[in-house]
């Protein structure tokens, strides 16, 4: 079941998935990581991603949808090249999380779960990301940036625009 003839994924990712389904006591355990890794490559969890993952694991597509819709990091619509996730939960809020969020909105000209017209950035307000002691913090494509000020955010955005940003995927 695992090796798929016409995979939509890159050869590396396909090979990784071939292996991933075999390492657990049950294939299904690979589902959540697969969805996340597929999203990292494709940009979002598309219908084609769902179909292939369902086939790889041997699940109904409905099952895959049930699971994927549960997890807030998984999305079924494309996002920007760099997804900016701003934490506004309590510790960040106390140290300017909302200010950072406002700043991002103005700077990028987009709102929550929106993407800039050039497709470079998308923005999301998120719950606590586990950086409370270094608040306010954001994540861009999984990379943490903490102890932020609006000025530091500007520098960051420029860095990413210049292609200098780190991508931890």
């Amino acid at each position: 079941m695992s090796e798929i003839a016409n995979t939509i994924f890159s050869p590396e990712l396909a090979a990784r998935f071939d292996k991933l389904v075999t390492i657990y006591p049950l294939r299904r355990s690979a589902l959540v990581p697969m969805l996340l890794y597929a999203q990292d490559e494709v940009g979002y969890v598309s219908d084609a991603v769902i179909a292939e993952i369902a086939e790889r694991i041997g699940l109904l597509e409905l099952d895959v949808r049930n699971v994927l819709s549960y997890y807030s990091m998984l999305r079924t619509k494309p996002a920007g090249k760099y997804n900016v996730q701003v934490c506004t939960n309590i510790s960040c809020m106390l140290r300017g999380g909302y200010e950072i969020l406002d700043h991002c909105k103005h700077k990028l000209g987009i709102g929550h779960k929106e993407t800039t017209s050039d497709g470079v950035f998308s923005l999301e307000e998120v719950e606590c990301i586990g950086a409370c002691c270094w608040a306010p913090a954001i994540q861009i494509n999984y990379d943490f940036h903490d102890d932020l000020t609006p000025e530091k955010v500007d520098v960051l955005f420029q860095m990413y625009r210049d292609g200098q940003g780190k991508d931890v995927k």
Partner: peptide, 20 residues
């Protein structure tokens, strides 16, 4: 993949088994 509730021990097992 983003869910606070998955920190609860049995929910975590569900998640690890590829479920909601």
């Amino acid at each position: 993949a983003g869910a606070y509730e998955v920190g609860e021990e049995s929910a975590l097992m569900e998640s690890l088994e590829g479920k909601r």
